[in-house]
Amino acid sequence: MNQERKEETPAAPAHSLVMGRILERLAGSGALIFSHSQKGDDTIVIQPEDILDVMRTLRDDPQLGFDIMMDLTVADYLGAERVWPYLAGLKARFEVIYHLYSIEKNHRIRVKAPLTLENLYIDSITGVWAGADWFEREAYDLYGVVFRGHPNLKRILLYEGFEGHPLRKDYPKMKRQPLIGPRN
């Protein structure tokens, strides 16, 4: 009955050409923590301090040319750190996740930067892609990650006066919020 389950073909290369180029560019910088190409999605995990350098490299390198910042989000691995072995070593609980795409070269990359609860800061990439503005505000709103250098970091989906960051795993689903009343 399990004939539909396809195992990863062992003959496939460990990573794509793009990934090779990225690893070549990042070699020696100390930025890279981990990389994988699970399910064909090329992924690099980098030190959060190096996010701006790495993003500029990815955008400006003529062979990479990632011109669109497709998505920016955060994941909270509280209680599930075992999913990624490197998280335990860094004592990290959060990951900021960027998905980039290159229109011209038609390839994608996922960039992840692990963060700890105590140091939930990362540089804003609004200077690299202006379109990251609202995505970073949303990540701040729902997870409480502070993007340093963001021009207007305030809540976006929720209202001013909301307490806590609801997508954190320790935020109870049914938690009540105080009434804020009209502000005129």
Binding site: T73, A75, Y77, A80, H99, W134, F135
Partner: peptide, 11 residues
Amino acid sequence: LKCRVRPPCFA
């Protein structure tokens, strides 16, 4: 663990 949707009209 996470189910994120990238909404096109957000951007």
